[in-house]
Amino acid sequence: MDAIVRGFMMYLFLLVLFRIAGRRTLGQMTNFDFVLLLIISEATQNAMIGNDFSVTNGILVILSLVGLDIGFSLLKQRFPVLNRHLDGLPLVLVEQGRPVQALMRKSRVDEQDILFSAREKHGLERMEQIKYAVLETNGGISIIPKAE
């Protein structure tokens, strides 16, 4: 039982934590973000597995995580209002080449992040070439270029 309870607790804790930490935390992966992710997964594993290295324990922990994940996805399907609470909503940060400073400050995104995404996805050179820039729920920034 403890394997399942621990699995549930860690899943829920991480779910709430990353909603609080903000979506940019793991959205754009620098080398440091990657290392941070590895360390977090290591700490999570220690908490869930403990010192029980049996296959039974491993399977129960994994099933509890995946099972809860499936459960939440079914719940989101039946109650769409859960989507905004669990995943968040997209946010428009740049309109017609003009960044919305207040929203960018609140979401801790600066112009360089947006320009990086614009270069990466569309090879754009300047902020004026961006029609809309959207901070998506997965932490990525999607860019809609102005029609030439």
């Binding site: 403890d2 394997a3 399942i4 309870v5 029980d52 039974t56 129960l60």
Partner: peptide
């Protein structure tokens, strides 16, 4: 998972 929570897997 139900079986585990009811004790069929020990601990």
């Amino acid at each position: 998972l139900a079986a585990g929570l009811l004790g069929l897997f020990g601990h």
